[in-house]
Amino acid sequence: MAKMNLEQLRKLREEKKGDMVRRNVEGKNIQIIVGMGTCGIAAGAKQTFDEIVKAVEENKISADVIIRQTGCMGLCYVEPTVEIVMPGMPATIYGRVDVSIAREIVAKHVVGKTLVENHIYDRPAVDIVKS
């Protein structure tokens, strides 16, 4: 592979923009957030992140989706964790999201608006956590 320069990167980006199919006129309103703290990294969150990026592109929904990284969400025992916030679905945190579950979440939850069973978790309740 030849090394790209920044001008070629700019061109590549413009080409990819042409592939987008914009469904929502009001802009991006689906957020996918991947936990990338020590716990997430140790459990393979980087691979999960990469797979989500690929799956979003393949499903042609990148015009509607924001993909972000954050630190630890407090669910270290079920990393990698992925939170999805979007209209028409409850804000959901998925745990134990390996590469294949990541793909399933994009296809079922984000595109199909159906929860992916057996991977739904929630933040620890604040009233039971001693500070």
Partner: peptide, 28 residues
Amino acid sequence: SEILDAVGDLSDAGALLAAREFLASQEA
């Protein structure tokens, strides 16, 4: 800042894929 200038916000899947391809080409 150079990458952001070239591809825009990195919360976009298209921008991420382009930036990734660029970085991978530097590593080749």
